[in-house]
């Protein structure tokens, strides 16, 4: 299947990736051939087969609801590209 430039633009936005025109051309061609290969899954009749998301038979692992030690604010913010006081600093999410 082909992976059109329109699809590349749409998926890039969903992925929050800014791509150059050259990258878009390349990804469109490469994802097209990867998806061609993946098409072979269509040969298999999987009607009624339960999807397997995870191999261990583990569900709802809980711990006691007690307060434990955690990172200090300075440790938690230590790698932030930009901080202000005790917060991560970001550009305004809502336009004026």
């Amino acid at each position: 299947m082909s992976f059109s430039r329109e699809q590349v633009d749409k998926v890039a936005l969903l992925s929050r990736l800014e791509l150059t025109d050259e990258e878009k051309d390349r990804i469109s061609q490469q994802l097209g051939s990867i998806l061609d290969y993946i098409e072979q899954l269509g040969e298999l009749d999987t009607e009624g087969v339960e999807p397997l998301a995870h191999c261990l038979p583990i569900q709802n692992v809980f711990r006691e609801d007690v307060v434990e030690e955690s990172l200090s604010i300075d440790e938690a913010l230590g790698n932030a590209p930009k901080r202000r006081d005790e917060f991560f600093a970001v550009p305004p999410p809502i336009e004026k």
Binding site: V8, V11, A12, R16, L17, L19, E23, R26, I27
Partner: peptide
């Protein structure tokens, strides 16, 4: 993300 990730990572995120 466009500048921080390399080609293969971008390709896989897209796929």
């Amino acid at each position: 993300r466009g500048q921080g990730f390399g080609d293969e990572v971008k390709r896989r995120i897209m796929l």
